[in-house]
Design a protein around this nucleic acid. Sequence first.
DNA 1: CTGAAAGCGCTTACAG
DNA 2: CTGAAAGCGCTTACAG
Lengths: 337, 337
Amino acid sequence: MKRRPTITDVAARAGVSKSTVSLVLQGSPLVRSETAKTVRAAMREMGYVYNRAAATLRGSSVGLVGLVINDLRNPFFTEFAVSFQMAMAAAGYATVISNADEDAELQEKLVASMIEHGVDAVVISPAYGDPSSVFDPLARAGIPTLQVLRRMDPRTELFPFASFDYAAGSAEATRHLIASGARRIAFVGGLDERSITRERMEGYLAALEEAGLSPLRVEGPTSRAFGRSAVARLKDDHPECDAVFCFNDLVALGLIAGLQRDGVAVGRDIRVVGFDDIEEAALAWPDLSSVACDIAGFARDTAGALRDWLDTGTRPPAERRAPVGLVVRASSGGLGQ
Amino acid sequence: MKRRPTITDVAARAGVSKSTVSLVLQGSPLVRSETAKTVRAAMREMGYVYNRAAATLRGSSVGLVGLVINDLRNPFFTEFAVSFQMAMAAAGYATVISNADEDAELQEKLVASMIEHGVDAVVISPAYGDPSSVFDPLARAGIPTLQVLRRMDPRTELFPFASFDYAAGSAEATRHLIASGARRIAFVGGLDERSITRERMEGYLAALEEAGLSPLRVEGPTSRAFGRSAVARLKDDHPECDAVFCFNDLVALGLIAGLQRDGVAVGRDIRVVGFDDIEEAALAWPDLSSVACDIAGFARDTAGALRDWLDTGTRPPAERRAPVGLVVRASSGGLGQ
DNA sequence: CTGAAAGCGCTTACAG
DNA sequence: CTGAAAGCGCTTACAG
C-alpha cells in the first residue's frame, strides 16, 4: 500500500508547478488547455486521488451535509433520506445519512462526529429528548441546521423547522369518514405527549366537534406491531367503533392485518384511514386510504432551502408547512372492494 | 460566524504549547493530570471543536467507513445498514450510509466522493452494472473494500464477499412445501440473469428434482408491486399452481394482497413462502412463512470482519456464507388460520 | 498564463 | 512531563 500521489507528484510528472495542478483541479480558465491536458494525463497515469481533507483545511467548504434521522427503518423516513440525498447529489453535495435509532445519546454522538468531520450543514429529524445536547454544539460550531418533521428545539429562528400540515390532513380524513357515514371514529396510535401526535389529532378533534361527535382514543406507539395489537384494545374499550383514523400507515396496516384475522371486513364493517401514504398503502389489500405527504417533493424543497442558505446566506423561514391531501381507497369504503 | 478556536488558541489560553494540547486531545498519559485539566477547561470555555480533517492530513486514519447500498428503500437493506452503522459506532467508527438507488452511475459518483473524503474502508452492496468503474478506483486508492449481499466483482480475494446461504434456504423452503402436499410449486420474482436469483432458485430446483417435480416460473422484479401484479400472470400461465415460493418477502406480500383481492384463501387454497423474513412477515395476515436471514447478526459479523481487517490487517476470507433458516407460519399452512 | 511562498490545524519525532 | 520545529496536501494571493 504505497503512498498516494499528491499534487506535487503530479506537478513533477507534468513538468509544471503544483499551483498549476491545483488550478486544473478546480477547472480554472486561467490554465492553458494544452497544459491542463498534460496535467490531467499525468493524474490519470499516476492514479491521483484528490484529497479533500487537505483542501478543506485551507478554507474551502467540504461539500458535505449531514442527515440525522430518528428512525431510518421507518419507510417514511427512509424515503425522505434517499430523496434528500439524491437532491443534494444533483447539486454536487455529498450527504451522509445516519440513523439515531430514537436514541438521544447515540444521536448526540453522531452529531458530534459530524461536527468534527466538518460538515457544512446538518438536517435533523430529531429523536425525543433534551434538544440542547445536540443543538447547542451545532450552534457553537456555527453549522447551519434545519429541523425537519419533528420540532424538538423551540429556537426555530436559529434552527428553522419544516414539516407537513398534519392538522389539515387529519381534519380532511376525519370529515371524509363522517361523510361516509361513520359516527364512532377512533384515533389509534401515537403518544399523547408528543407534539406530532397532538398535531395529527388536532384536525381529528376539530372535525368531530364540527359534527357533534365525541372522540375515541387508543394511545400507543406508531409501529405495525402496535397496530396489530390495538385490535384487541379497540374491541374491549370501544366495541361500538365503526371507523379508525390511524396515526400512520404502519399502524393502519398492522390494524388491518389484525382485523382480517378476526374476520372483520375492512372498508365495510369498519373503515380505516392511515397517514403518510407510504408506497405500500396502494399495494395492500384492501388498498389503504391515507393522507398523502409528498415526501420526495418535501425532501427536494428542503434540499433547495438548505442550498440557498449555504450558497446565498438566506436563512429559511422559521417554519414551513407542506400541504397534504387525502387519497381515498377501499379501506374507507371509497371504492367497492 | 467567527473563526472556530484552534489548538493554538487553546494553548495560549491554557498557557501551554500546542503540542501539549494535542497530547491532551489524544488522552496521552504523558501529560500531567493537572495540566490536562487546565487544558480541558480552556477547551470548554472557548467552545473548541476538534478538526478531524487537519488531524487526518498529518497521517492518522479518519475513523470513517463508507457504506454504499444498492436500494436503501428495501427494508432488508435498511436493516443491514442501520445494524452495521450501530456495530461500527460501538467500536468508535463513524459510518456514512448512502443509497445508489440501483443506479451504477450514481454509485460511481458516491464512491468517488467517499474516496476523496478519505474513508478508511468501504462496504458495498453493489448495483448491477460494470463493476470496474467502482471497484478499480477503490483498488487504486488502496481502500479495503468488502462486497456484501451481491457479488459484482469477481476478484473476491481483493474484495472479499459475504452473503447468506441462499441455496440452502430455498431448498429447505421448497422441501417444506412439498412435505405439506404441494406439487405445482412456482418460483415468483427475480431476474434470471442475476446471480442472486440463480442462487435462490438453485435450492428450489434441486428440491423439486429430488421429488420428481417440475418447476413453474414467473420472472420479474423483486418489488411488492410486482408481487401484486404477478397474481394475474400466475393465473394465466400456471392455473394449476398450488404453492408459490417467492424471491423475497416484498414479492410475497404483494402476491398475497393480490390473491386476497381475488378471494383466494392463502395457506389453504394456495401456500406461499417468502424470503428474508423482514419484520412485516410476522405481522402480516396471514403470517408469512419465510426464510429468515439474521441480518442484524450478519451486519455485526461484517462489522467485526472489517474492523479486524483495519486493525490487524487480516483480510477476511474471499467468501463467507451466513446460515439461514425457514420460519413456518400460516401462509404455508403451517399453523391453522 | 505560470511559479514561489505562506498558511490552514493538526501530529510527531526530537530535545530538553 | 513540556516545548520548538517540521510537515501532512492542498489553496490563495502575489509576482512575474
